[in-house]
Design a protein around this nucleic acid. Structure first.
Lengths: 112, 112
DNA sequence: TTTGATGCATAGAATTCTTAGGTATAAATA
DNA sequence: TATTTATACCTAAGAATTCTATGCATCAAA
């Protein structure tokens, strides 16, 4: 996932957030979407993405739907009910984390 | 380090930033300082902190100065010259990361 | 006098991601 | 038409970082 270790730990949250916004997506689509959204800053590697998707599925947060496009298959992922709840939790945690880090590294611009 | 994996990858930057602001600090002091600054949100564990300090020292970013206080010793760490430069780099990367993540998880509040 | 705070440290496990492959179809280009 | 690039899935081995669980020792407070 990119070259920056800062993103370590945030992949699940990123995936869940994308699926909250876009309803259903397939793996390759996610990598391209993130690349565009971040102007190339963040490149999710497939070696990180697919295991992450499988784990989210195994944990019951995502459901899969296989589609055939031409002669190739795509695996569309979407949030389950508990996935939607967990997404809300994870986004809250992420906001808290971002606020805390902002405060730590740049106290001037994060006064409350 | 707390229970949140989101902080994975940001420990070095946190340490460097603290030393940039406070000139010199010892390990235990760092844990307490972060705990206060984050109102308990982030608790750096010693099992994460000390190896991190040793690595930063080995990489030439920190210099150590042992002090005796009463009958106990403290190891004060401070930035070296290259440590100061690297701190600037890491803080820039962190700002970029925070901006990117904010944009990803909450596009509404991160328009430019 | 025993607990809690201070202060250092390491070893092993767990987690996450990177690197480096593998397979295959479709489109573009040389 | 042959080859490269893009699309689309996947996994295994290793690196890197952190957590959990220890250990040792001093000092203050209960």
């Amino acid at each position: 996932m990119g070259n920056q270790k800062l993103y370590k730990g945030s992949l699940q949250t990123i995936i869940l957030k994308l699926l909250e916004t876009n309803d259903k997506m397939y793996g390759y689509e996610i990598t391209q979407h993130v690349k565009e959204l971040t102007k190339g800053e963040l490149q999710i590697t497939e070696g990180a993405l697919y295991p992450a998707l499988h784990k989210l599925e195994a944990d019951g947060l995502l459901a899969v739907e296989v589609a055939k496009v031409g002669n190739r298959l795509r695996k569309y992922y979407k949030l389950t009910e508990s996935g939607t709840k967990e997404t809300a939790n994870k986004l809250e945690e992420m906001q808290e984390f971002l606020k805390t880090m902002q405060h730590l590294v740049n106290p001037k611009f994060s006064m409350e």
